[in-house]
Design a protein around this nucleic acid. Structure first.
Lengths: 222, 222
DNA sequence: CCTGGTACTTTTGGATCCAATATTCAATGT
DNA sequence: ACATTGAATATTGGATCCAAAAGTACCAGG
């Protein structure tokens, strides 16, 4: 019995730490701009600084944390311009992924997407934001993955990661949750009809709405 | 006087190791598919395994090396499909970068690009492949960078990195070198005229030629 | 001859310790 | 009062050591 406490603990400490750090960042437990004190964090996670540092290097590569030699790591603070740029890149990359995906769509993939969408709705009703972000992500990635371009999907996934902290904000709002569900339904419909360009359009609106909401949220003075 | 031997040595060992590893991979000193033995490499570079491992984590994030827990790192072996995918992603991303760049082009940027091109030609004449790849890279990045989208440029740069080993092969061939120079001239011309779409077309051909050559090179049976 | 298992070796993963660098803060002089 | 310098402290960077896992070679049994 290798400790069945919710999720099974990864085989290496770095992977465990990596997952914990991701959660800490996306949930806002580690806030943007905040420096990361290795010793304290390592003790808290009950590991030494070595695996922590390796996990931080991974996150640095993904753009989730920043690093300056001899000065340490800190959670990156995304400016509005940064957010817009990430969404711009996503727009370009995801459009390509969707076009390919639609051409290669199988019934199994559609079914998996529908399943994910059902989970999104369940989580939304329960008001479980983390579960909803997870299912939402699964919904989109399921489609992207069937494009048969693993590197492209990896890039897209990394871009999603880098804005996880902000996406949670978006889902915290009730009307936004409903909007997402409606848009997903539209997407599923268009996917069944294999209308790639229409799916791309819905996705673009999907993202624009998110950016718009975040702009409102992040602009303090109004 | 902190050792002025060619390049100044970076302030941390990981950065030094990182640079060395990049060189070793791009020059083929570490060959694709080959496992990376940490102890041996660390000793060779005269550092401990700790900074080496952190450098490897960075390279893992960039897709230059692969990693499997408890089994170690190895230089990634790109299949033809992988190469094609990288070039596809580059096509999409670079097109966007160029369109933005053309709109924001300044005389200084054009001048810097011309300077880089002069270096490319000098290196090509001397048959200095490493110098040529460096200058070539500078040429393209100079243009991309003036798009004002740092994250996009970072992505593009990473994609270039991941195929450095193969690009060197391409430049090893004389007619390819000439071809690159001609295409660069065409690009500079079109940049001066601010014809973004034409530049995109030239770039696409530029890449297609490289992919075609690599396909020929990497297909053993003919 | 092939298969499965077991001791042995190699290699990676992680903890601890020490060194190097940055930061803080108080003392000093202007 | 303010800037500057220098010691004390906190924090990161790196080396060494030990533990854990994977790989290897050899032997017994079929």
């Amino acid at each position: 019995m290798t400790s069945v406490e919710g999720h099974r603990r990864p085989p290496t400490a770095q992977q465990f730490v990596l997952a914990e750090l991701r959660r800490a960042i996306t949930t806002g437990r580690l806030r943007p701009g905040e420096p990361i004190r290795q010793e304290a964090l390592a003790e808290e996670l009950d590991v030494s600084r070595v695996p922590l540092r390796e996990a931080l290097k991974t996150l640095e590569g993904e753009g989730l944390v920043g690093y300056r030699p001899h000065r340490g790591y800190s959670v990156v603070q995304l400016s509005l311009d940064d957010l817009r740029e990430v969404y711009l890149i996503r727009r370009i990359l995801e459009a390509e992924a969707v076009r390919r995906a639609v051409a290669l769509l199988t019934p199994e993939v559609l079914e998996a997407a529908e399943k994910a969408q059902a989970d999104v709705e369940r989580a939304a009703e329960a008001g479980d934001v983390p579960a909803m972000t997870e299912a939402n992500r699964r919904f989109h990635m399921t489609v992207f993955e069937c494009a048969g371009l693993p590197r492209l999907v990896r890039l897209i996934r990394t871009l999603w990661d880098s804005t996880d902290a902000y996406r949670s904000m978006y889902y915290g709002d009730d009307p936004n949750r409903e909007r997402v569900i409606a848009e997903h339904h539209a997407m599923l419909d268009l996917l069944r009809r294999r209308d790639a360009e229409a799916v791309v359009r819905v996705l673009d609106e999907h993202r624009s709405a998110a950016v718009g909401a975040l702009e409102a949220l992040l602009t303090p003075g109004g």
